[in-house]
Design a protein around this nucleic acid. Structure first.
Lengths: 124, 124
DNA sequence: CTGTATCCACAACGATACTG
DNA sequence: CAGTATCGTTGTGGATACAG
């Protein structure tokens, strides 16, 4: 962990801090969950692979995301080759422990979000 | 649902859309998860109760949040009394179906986020 | 290949004041 | 009580160009 207390994102129900808010604060950005998901599936990916895997996002944003996640100890960065530079990203233990959340999100998405062609396909 | 396709938040792994990204897009804002959580615990709450339950947030933000969630069919608003106005918010079915995600977040938070005094208390 | 530096746009958040 | 209007600040994301 970096330098601050557990979380300053908010509190609730009279408690000093709120686990839900704090967790949301941790991976509440647009691309964090997908990164975790891709890394859950592939174990480890290089920067460019990650960028390819995830559509509609520029390198800068991936970089930002990865940066933030590394700082929060969710992913680990390792330089595989120096020439040319090759880097691999993998989930840390902490990052892997997010699996239940991400999987729940994945499942919910498949279950409750229409995929543009799944909603109107009743065989009846 | 309102007017658009399922989700335009992003895609991944060659798929047309990404369940994880889309779900994140749905409740990826700062206060959405907590609202769901509080409503999961209390079944239904009035506006002011919700504001009291959740700390560090102004009415405007709660209102915005609730507004967005209602539009996404995650919560249901019902006027209980007209004079003075009293309103109750409860989760819709869709909203309740988010329970696994929120609970996973709650659990993860309690498990992996220090509560300023819990980190150094190993009984062993 | 793996990033960083800029710059811009927009949405979310937050404070305050005001209304039905 | 339950909001909305307004305004300002900040953060996040996105495009492009450049660098080690």
């Amino acid at each position: 962990m970096s330098d601050q207390d557990a979380c300053s994102a908010g509190w609730c129900a009279g408690e000093e801090w709120c686990p839900v808010t704090c967790t949301a604060d941790l991976l509440g950005r647009k691309w964090h969950p997908v990164v975790v998901h891709r890394l859950l599936v592939h174990d480890s990916l290089r920067f460019s692979e990650l960028r390819e895997e995830i559509g509609g996002v520029t390198g800068k944003v991936i970089s930002d995301t990865l940066d933030d996640m590394e700082e929060k100890d969710l992913v680990e960065r390792s330089v595989v080759d120096e020439k040319p530079v090759q880097v691999e990203y993998a989930l840390s233990e902490r990052g892997e422990s997010l699996a239940p959340i991400i999987e729940a999100m994945d499942e919910w998405g498949r279950d409750h979000l229409v995929s543009v062609d799944a909603v109107e396909t009743p065989s009846a």
